[in-house]
Amino acid sequence: MSAVAEIDGAATATVHARRTAVERKMMRRGFLFVAPAVLLLLAIYVIPVIVLAGFSVTDYQLGALSTRFVGIDNFVNAFNDQVFMRAMKNTVIYALIVIPLGVGLALGVALLVHGRKRSRAFWEAAYFLPVTATLVAMATVWQFLLHPSIGPVNAAIKWMGFEPVSFLSDPSLLIPTMAMIGVWQVLGFNMVLFLAGLTAIPQDLYEAARLDGAKNPIDRFFTVTWPMLGPTTLFVVVTTSISAFKVFETVAVLTKGRFGSEVLLFSLYLEGFEYSNTGYAAALTLIFLAIILVLSIGQTVHLDRKVHY
């Protein structure tokens, strides 16, 4: 009896040893497989973020001989910096135009496109084209289109009997003009997200709503479509606001950030890479990062939820 028990015990021990050997092998493989990614993650994300935070409390300038610790001076300066505050305000105005129009129009187009059967692919492609196009090149085209004397847009305005509008020279029109281009670019992207959301709504619900007496399309929209699109809409608003806060190309091409068109990312670019005020730019970058992170929380929650379901 006891001999059997001993043999049993020995067997379990070897099984146990073997299992840990297998586990150790798997661990080694795991480390090996993630090693390049981990090294890059450190080099591209972790260390730069730490360095960035370090820069932000110094007066470091690229190429300068001495560097001083300045505490939160850079942040204080940022909030007293008229140019930066103007950039902040302009970016917010830009976002406040792009978000409602970019989301609302995209929803409208998606609802119309969703109802088409044979022509759906055509409309989808037409509205999505600006998303793929190189924005720098297209901004140049817009510059031409909006030209006060030789652009067709102003020609049309004049033909209708109005005064030509100097979209790209009147400082108060710069941000709205660029916001319109922003809407033009983001529309197709958002439309596709909404189309995916619409396709996911079960047809049954519309039928149930019709039998429940929702004869009016407005009723069906508010009973079924709008609430079922809730998560999609939230996500679209978040991605649109993030991309609005990252507006850069149109400014770089159309105005080079001149008065009236200062935006967050372009000011950051100027301070950090044109004027080499690295320390100050680092502080601005952290402010920019904080805004993006707050906006991203919604996006990550969305992505994360997809992990669990």
């Binding site: 049954d204 039928e207 149930a208 019709r210 039998l211 929702a214 004869k215 009973t223 609430p227």
Partner: peptide
């Protein structure tokens, strides 16, 4: 229109409004 027929239907999937 279905909404004018005063019929009630129970669907295979129940078709309950998930947000309500």
């Amino acid at each position: 229109d279905p909404s004018d027929r005063n019929l009630a239907m129970v669907f295979q999937s129940y078709a309950l409004y998930p947000h309500m």
